[in-house]
Design a protein around this nucleic acid. Structure first.
Length: 167
DNA sequence: CAATAGATCATCT
DNA sequence: GATGATCTATTGC
């Protein structure tokens, strides 16, 4: 039949909770628990998916112990398998490197929606497994993209030189 | 090329 | 009622 649709995460951003000590005012969890941010304060290894600009969905992985806020936004994915099954907003877009290089595009490509909000990512149909880190692979660091407050914090991480990184 | 505008709605004040 | 952890198309140089 067919294998799973899969991709390698090549770009992420961290969003810290109010307990972190750093004042990350860009984080949704900055102002504490609300109906939306409840899952960010929940168990790690679960998905936080939210609607942005009324139009796109963004996938995060909850990354701190229960009761402490903190999550990782998945900003870009390098398609590995099942590319033909991925979905594009513009089917005629050229080049697979534009398929999943952006938080709003990768959810579209992988079929991730708010339906997955709160889903366990350590087992089940939507899983994340530990990355391979070949010798010589470098992780780049920079400020985060598209935020106004706390714009100086170096919390964006990406695989140096990877062409699927958003920029 | 770079800069900007518009689409569109859940969330919080 | 204002605001976005975005993206695409369009305009301008």
């Amino acid at each position: 039949m067919h294998g799973a649709t899969s991709g390698r995460i090549v770009e992420t951003e961290a969003y810290l909770g109010p307990q972190s000590g750093l004042e990350d005012r860009a984080a949704h969890s900055w102002r504490g628990v609300t109906p939306r941010t409840r899952v960010i304060f929940g168990a790690p290894g679960h998905a936080y998916v939210y609607l942005i600009y009324g139009m796109y969905e963004c996938l995060n992985v909850v990354a701190e112990p229960e009761g402490i806020a903190g999550c990782v936004l998945i900003r870009a994915v390098e398609p590995v398998a099942g590319i033909a099954r991925m979905r594009l907003r513009r089917p005629t877009a050229s080049g697979i490197e534009k398929l999943a290089n952006g938080p709003g595009k990768l959810t579209l490509a992988l079929g991730i929606t708010r339906r997955h909000n709160g889903a366990d990512l350590t087992s089940g149909p939507l899983t994340i497994h530990p990355p391979e880190r070949p010798e010589g692979l470098r992780i780049g660091v920079s400020p985060r993209i598209g935020i106004k407050p706390s714009a100086d914090l170096p919390l964006r991480f990406f695989i140096e030189g990877n062409r699927f990184v958003s920029r």
